[in-house]
Design a protein around this nucleic acid. Structure first.
Length: 107
DNA sequence: CTCTTGACGCCGG
DNA sequence: TCCGGCGCCAAGA
């Protein structure tokens, strides 16, 4: 019998938050760690590195709005599709406008 | 047990 | 604005 993949509790908590992020909006690794209330940006980053493929990974980026290294092209496609606010030069997300938190409420 | 390694973040220069 | 340095913190060697 094959076992359904069981994710570490911390990873599930990260996924729960990521699933709440509305299209066109993003959250920083540190933001997610803060909502969970434990661990730090690096823990969230590690979780995403291992299992991120199962969720909307492009909505989770660094606090400075930089695209995920190695997946810039794919990420940009999603941002164009979701109309995520980008900076004038289009090289990164406009955090001032796109940054979201559960407290902002669903859209 | 110590040392290294990250999908990070902040602060100077 | 760009870059380097350092702090952070859990997991693995």
């Amino acid at each position: 019998m094959f076992k359904p993949p069981e994710l570490p509790p911390y990873v599930e908590q990260v996924f729960d938050i990521v699933d709440l992020i509305p299209p066109g909006r993003v959250m920083a690794y540190g933001d997610i760690a803060e909502v969970i209330g434990s661990g730090g940006p690096r823990q969230v980053g590690t979780a995403m590195a291992k299992y991120g493929g199962a969720v909307t990974w492009w909505r989770v980026i660094r606090a400075d709005g930089g695209f995920l290294a190695g997946h810039e092209r794919e990420a940009l496609e999603h941002y164009r599709e979701e109309e995520t606010p980008l900076r004038a030069d289009g090289s990164r997300v406009d955090m001032a406008r796109a940054r979201w938190s559960p407290a902002d409420g669903p859209e």
